[in-house]
Write a protein that binds this DNA or RNA. Sequence first.
DNA 1: GTCCATGCAAACTGTTTGCACGCGC
DNA 2: GCGCGTGCAAACAGTTTGCATGGAC
Lengths: 138, 138
Amino acid sequence: MTPAIRADRMTRQRRVVLDILAGSQDHLDAETIYALARARDAKISLATVYRALAWLKQRGLVQEQRLGEGHAHFETTPSEPHDHFTCIVCGRVIELEAAQVHELTHQLCTSQGLHVTGLQMLVQGVCGECREQGLGKR
Amino acid sequence: MTPAIRADRMTRQRRVVLDILAGSQDHLDAETIYALARARDAKISLATVYRALAWLKQRGLVQEQRLGEGHAHFETTPSEPHDHFTCIVCGRVIELEAAQVHELTHQLCTSQGLHVTGLQMLVQGVCGECREQGLGKR
DNA sequence: GTCCATGCAAACTGTTTGCACGCGC
DNA sequence: GCGCGTGCAAACAGTTTGCATGGAC
């Protein structure tokens, strides 16, 4: 007995997806990851990218973000938790130091008997650069 | 001249959608709103529901929420801003008093030259009831 | 040979759009 | 009659799934 639970494999495709995410500070969407992955492995399929992302996510290696759009973005799990500010003019995503906010929210939830497992803050607005260019005043 | 900007109309369909949202404390998705709307107006179409939601949203009467799922939820614009806690066991959505957290985030962003126009916190976890039932320990 | 992962294409979900009709002013 | 709003169906984007093939042990 003890058939030994066979650990799932870190295959080439999965590694490519992880590498791409690890090597980018951006928050990539599946389509972009797919395009970058094809540059390294012309035969990889979009379905595999999605399956790899799900697998990596399940193992805690990457995180999925919903930045208010219709599709998801992904990033490698950060050591420091952070939140995201999305500029509604240029689309840039800026990371926010989140410890304080998360701490406060945790307290709030715990005091109501809620056990928090995940936390995501989504801020939209106009970034400094776009404000300077007056684009934010349209 | 001064052709007088003709105000768009609050039509029957738009009112039905708004009424449904105003009469529910839940966070309804488009499909549910559509189902409820058909009960009052059998001929209303899903496209109209979406268009009505977009119109109401643009006028600030309703707000769209992304609760981490692939689809959107809607609620009438609350007088007090709040955030949402989604129980990953029973799916219930609990509203969180958000003023403090929003205040803190505003400060954080402003100090970085970011102009905030929208803010949404998304918390996932296990609610008190589900924890009591031990379902959260699975 | 046995699994698990992959590629492909088709299915599916949520949402948007084009177009002709129709109602209110 | 004009213009905006509607209904319908088709298009669309993002994501998931079924199935046969292929690779690692």
